[in-house]
Design a protein around this nucleic acid. Structure first.
Lengths: 170, 170
DNA sequence: ACAGCCATGTAACTTGTTACATGATTTT
DNA sequence: AAAATCATGTAACAAGTTACATGGCTGT
């Protein structure tokens, strides 16, 4: 869907889309080329894009894609809909805590280690947020807020470990 | 890994593991049987579990699995390691906002809708938290904290939409 | 007789991940 | 001459999702 969105700004080809995606949305983790071309094939298969033509650029030919009406409609729908807010109640942190309690391992130690890892990550994100551009800093803030949420949950859970142990084993 | 963890409490078979998993970890969304048996096959393939025997229970035969030493070691490692704290800077909410800005759609309207959806979900989670047992309420709290994190980010982003628009288009 | 639960699995499909293959152009 | 960049793709593998197939036992 994100590739479709980028394509809406004007016809383009895989290589350029990947570049655009990386700088605009994922400065951290570049999108693998394999996935780009695979996704474009699927978008084409589903009628959301069409191949507009082959252009000779600098190097190999470029296969330019353009969004269709169906593609624009799909994008419209996707962008208008809010994301499902945490639909499934499930969390890996919770799972590890419960499994630790069930097996005589120390859940408290795990929570402490997790808190330390989170705090460490928060420090580096805070730096990125100061030094980066607005995109970096908004993404960093997003991650920071969620790490803080985890920290709150870790504290809460730690304070209720005894009750949890009782409920889980019982 | 969670199935492996449940199995550590004592040999068991697929059906029972699924039941146990559903009540202990995912009261919301039951684990499909297909995935249970597929996962058990993989655990066996990887040498983490072995088939201990066939028992005739009430109904069809039960294929009981037991954790091996290698399985216990893998579990140990997994439980001891903290989860990678938000490793990739990326977020669907952010993506939608940027795409909206790039395409003359209203990012502010999207953020408002998203906030409304989040608030709605938070209301039902708050109820669950009051009425459910400790497991339900810890899972609800986890989700609630993360929804709050999103709300904070939504407010922040909304207040910087103009600057974002400038940076993204430029 | 029939519904529902116990219990196991396969098959088809979709997506993501990683690695590999190819070859031209531009820069050093 | 070598390295980086431009540009496209395939192949192998792994995992999740849904649906289907099978059949015995239990309760009404």
């Amino acid at each position: 869907m994100t590739l479709l969105g980028l394509l809406e700004g004007g016809p383009s080809h895989g290589y350029e889309l990947k570049r655009s995606y990386d700088t605009k949305f994922s400065p951290d983790r570049p999108l693998p080329f394999g996935q780009v071309y695979a996704t474009l094939s699927r978008l084409q298969r589903d009628g959301f894009v069409v191949v507009e033509g082959l252009e000779a650029g600098s190097g190999p030919d470029r296969k330019t894609y353009a969004v269709t009406e169906a593609g624009r409609a799909a994008l419209d729908e996707w962008l208008a809909e809010p994301e499902p807010p945490e639909p499934h109640l499930q969390a890996v942190l919770f799972t590890k805590v419960v499994l630790a309690l069930l097996s005589e391992r120390s859940a408290a130690r795990f929570l402490d280690l997790q808190r330390a890892a989170h705090l460490d990550r928060m420090r580096s994100l805070t730096e990125l947020r100061r030094e980066g551009d607005l995109i970096d800093s908004l993404l960093a803030d997003h991650a920071l807020f969620h790490l803080e949420a985890d920290l709150r949950w870790i504290d809460l859970t730690e304070s209720r470990l005894d009750a949890l142990a009782a409920e889980v084993s019982g």
